[in-house]
Design a protein around this nucleic acid. Sequence first.
DNA 1: CTCTATCATTAAGTTTGCCTTAATAGAGAA
DNA 2: TTCTCTATTAAGGCAAACTTAATGATAGAG
Lengths: 313, 313
Amino acid sequence: MIEADDLRFFAAIAAAPSLAAAARALDVSPPAVTQRLRSLEARLGVKLVDRGGRRLALTGEGELLAKRGRDIVGALDALNDTLLERRGEVAGDLRIVAPFGFGRRFVAPLAAQFREAHPRLRLDLTLVDRLSHAPPESWDIAIHIGAPNVAAHLAMRRLAPNARLLCAAPDYLARAGTPARPADLRNHACIALRENDEDVTMWHFSARQAGTTERIRIAPTLSTNDGEVAKAWAVAGQGLIVRSEWDVTEDLESERLVRILGDYDLPPAPVVALMGTERAARSARSRRFLDALAASLRTPPWRISTASPQTAP
Amino acid sequence: MIEADDLRFFAAIAAAPSLAAAARALDVSPPAVTQRLRSLEARLGVKLVDRGGRRLALTGEGELLAKRGRDIVGALDALNDTLLERRGEVAGDLRIVAPFGFGRRFVAPLAAQFREAHPRLRLDLTLVDRLSHAPPESWDIAIHIGAPNVAAHLAMRRLAPNARLLCAAPDYLARAGTPARPADLRNHACIALRENDEDVTMWHFSARQAGTTERIRIAPTLSTNDGEVAKAWAVAGQGLIVRSEWDVTEDLESERLVRILGDYDLPPAPVVALMGTERAARSARSRRFLDALAASLRTPPWRISTASPQTAP
DNA sequence: CTCTATCATTAAGTTTGCCTTAATAGAGAA
DNA sequence: TTCTCTATTAAGGCAAACTTAATGATAGAG
């Protein structure tokens, strides 16, 4: 008889571009995938995957199995969750995705603490440079900085406010001068941080007093996809950066960096959580984890000693 | 992670009055049930069954698991069937229930033949004395003689016509005389065959010429639940029986028995098939089996050489 | 072109889950 | 009581699914 685990196994194959990739996703060796697929096909008496050289393609029966299997596995996992929840204990698998910088600084410590409080929980924290690289099926919770432009249909929960600040190193400003208006940025070295598929060279300013907005298309002299690198460049006096409050608060305090154009606000980038699936959104462990994370961010660490230009909603 | 086989396993426990009974139903030893149940409970972290001495009762979580598990296993089995059907091959499990006499004589040979034609099929033929003893969940197809009074909501298919005949042994008639009208039966020894929860002591006669009907409440001198025994008694001259055409045709030919009150019809008892579940009704193997059985009964063996009082529809 | 990396597969050995038998203990009926 | 059925523990066996090791095949790099 066909088993739910066969469906999970085949779902991994259906989602992977090759049997070897499926083996990696399943944490088993390639021969295990070959053998098990063969045995599954033999048991059903149906060919499921056409192995055309290096490319693999599902047969009609394979598509059917993958499609209907998805629902069955979903129902089984939901049942599992219900039973775990009844017990009042947080257990099972929890797959979290977070950006490299924020994840390392704020999610990882909380994850360790949460895991310690719930011994039967298996927790995976994957740090990514952009969320679009991790499909929603591959995670239960994604932490994101700023309003997500992808996957707007997913359930979302705000965890903490977070402003973006224009900053530079004091010695850079001593050399290049301090801009007084957004338009002055055209004559400055700007460092672009390519994250989250945003239009990172279009900087939006809104004058806090006048309520007017200005947009500047900067021509980055340096660009990177890594926040640490961008900030290091800025600290080294390479130019201006727009960076999240959570990352530069310490640097502003220690005056490695100085805030510029303080009369203007940049678009805020609140810390939000996304739910990968319906199941994730409802599951007790997801809720409990986000409760814990939200609590740890309630007075965001980066606000404790900084007078922020924005107040929490 | 919980598996579909765990759900099947637990469904058996939920349906059984004791763990030992579940073990019998599952074809395993009692320790296997104990161990596996314990491991399942440990894995879920939830107690599923309250073992109060000899009686067992499901906990709330146990009820939940049994209830939601049913749907999941059903979906999985349906998926299995779909794939088997796509292959065009008849495979999987087929559980047939039939009455003792008819099953042994007509269903068993066809079942063997059908099984031989489909090597990947597992077939179980359970002979029962009354259908009400076998709940619809326990079979895919039930063969029944006469319009079923139980489970009228189940899908039904007529397989062959079958009349009931009033018969007796010649030497009994020589001794006791031959009844001319139904009312004469009051003065005769009647043998009752208690089958199918019918009202077996109320014999209904309809005069074929006049179109009138008569009901006689007989007082059986002998009664049994076994058709073979009833017929043997009749052949031995113990009295009158009402018996299905399929069973007495040979005896009438060989004149071990003689038909009585030939001008009257008794209520017919067509051979019908019932489907235990929606799934059974749709599955290819059920359809194919019933096609084969219907074909083998198309010219019912018991009609080949007998002029029947009823003709096929 | 050759070289190299990756992929898919076969073969053979190992682990692990689930079953078995055997033995122990308790509850209820004869 | 004794007998029977039930539930459980302990110890051993089997089969499924994994592992490592080795082979052939294919695509892209140099």
